[in-house]
Design a protein around this nucleic acid. Structure first.
Length: 310
RNA sequence: CGCGGGGUAGAGCAGUUGGCAGCUCGCCAGGCCCAUAACCUGGAGGCCGUGGGUUCAAGUCCCACCCCCGCAA
């Protein structure tokens, strides 16, 4: 007898968790709820969320709701053939109302990419790196109506390396969550595991990121800027403007910040290297960048083509 | 057809009003040096994205198409 589960998820972060449940005999995923297909990319091609693709490969029914707060959505989810043991929510992308959270017999379980109560919100992975945290992790919790606020079932920690990007950490945490989820969910549904309340006073929050958030504020310290570039790679990316053109900053040398006199935020070519003076009087060295309309290139490549001009 | 930038040597770029295709780096050879990624000399390497058109002459002007990228989502 396997537990019946409905899975809510949308982004890449949720894919490993869904896969883990699909591949585990203890669970039967009876439906997958995901956001509607959306126009994406340069040519606005309507594309299904990655979770939908995986679900369809496993012949699992997929439901996509424009709005989850409507009566219609509620009725579909409360239909008799959708009576399940639990909902599992991983990076779904929408706030789920209380009356839907109340539907499953044993509530709603969530996988979150931080050590709650730290970094509640949508950009927990980037936030941990940008803040210079030494460690982070995943939390598996009982969802309630407030964002990332519910009782904790278990947490797994990982160390953040000095060179780790947001993308790399994202993938590691997605896998860690997926590895942890099945056993925790099974124990919870069997009544062997109780949730523990979070220490709400220690909560920190992070917002949903957009590309504008990746604009570099060169008045910050060199160290903060290096962390931000690393945290925001590849999403939402970091950028600045030189000579009226947008330039993405892909990679900055870690841990080598020399004092340098010069105008803050202006590109300096020195000894075949690209330096930018930051707000604390130290310079970051840019290793990889991408001018508007061009491919990603190394600083050496950039210098080769711009030496004479400047 | 959502808006915009771009395709020229292995890489990054320049190429004026159409008139022999260049620069920086890299590569190869030689030289200098105790030595070198430094310096000097020489060299190789190009269907100028593809196809048409205008012209005595097209990287350059016109048309179509392909590909890459920034914004946007």
């Amino acid at each position: 007898m396997s537990y019946k589960i409905i899975f809510f998820g949308t982004s890449e972060f949720s894919v490993p968790s869904l896969k883990a449940l699909l591949d585990d005999d203890r669970f039967e995923v009876v439906a997958v709820i995901t956001k509607p297909d959306a126009p994406i990319g340069r040519h606005q091609v309507v594309t299904p969320p990655p979770v939908k693709v995986l679900a369809q490969e496993h012949q699992v029914p997929v439901l996509q709701f424009d709005k989850i707060k409507t009566d219609e959505t509620f009725e579909k989810l409360s239909a008799s053939d959708n009576r399940v043991d639990a909902f599992v929510v991983v990076s779904y992308g929408k706030i789920i109302p209380q009356r839907i959270l109340d539907l499953p017999k044993h509530g709603v379980i969530n996988v979150h990419g931080s050590l709650l109560p730290l970094w509640r919100g949508a950009s927990c992975v980037q936030a941990a790196i940008a803040a210079g945290d030494k460690k982070t992790g995943v939390t598996i919790m009982q969802m309630d109506a407030e964002m990332d606020h519910g009782n904790i079932l278990t947490q797994k920690e990982v160390l953040i390396s000095q060179t780790e990007t947001g993308g790399e950490l994202h993938d590691r945490l997605a896998e860690l969550g997926a590895q942890t989820l099945p056993d925790v969910l099974s124990d919870y549904l069997a009544g062997k595991l109780k949730g523990q309340p979070q220490n709400h006073e220690q909560a920190t929050y992070c917002k949903l990121l957009s590309r504008d958030d990746g604009k570099i504020d060169w008045t910050k310290s060199a160290e903060e800027i290096e962390r931000l570039v690393r945290a925001y790679h590849p999403w939402p990316g970091t950028w600045t403007e030189w000579d009226g053109k947008r330039v993405k900053i892909i990679k900055i040398a870690n841990g080598k910040y020399k004092e340098l006199i010069g105008e803050i935020g202006i590109l300096v070519m020195q000894d075949d290297r690209l330096l930018v003076v930051c707000g604390d009087g130290h310079a970051v060295e840019i290793l990889e960048l991408q001018p508007e309309g061009k491919r990603v290139m190394t600083s050496q490549e950039y210098i080769a083509g711009h030496k004479l001009i400047s």
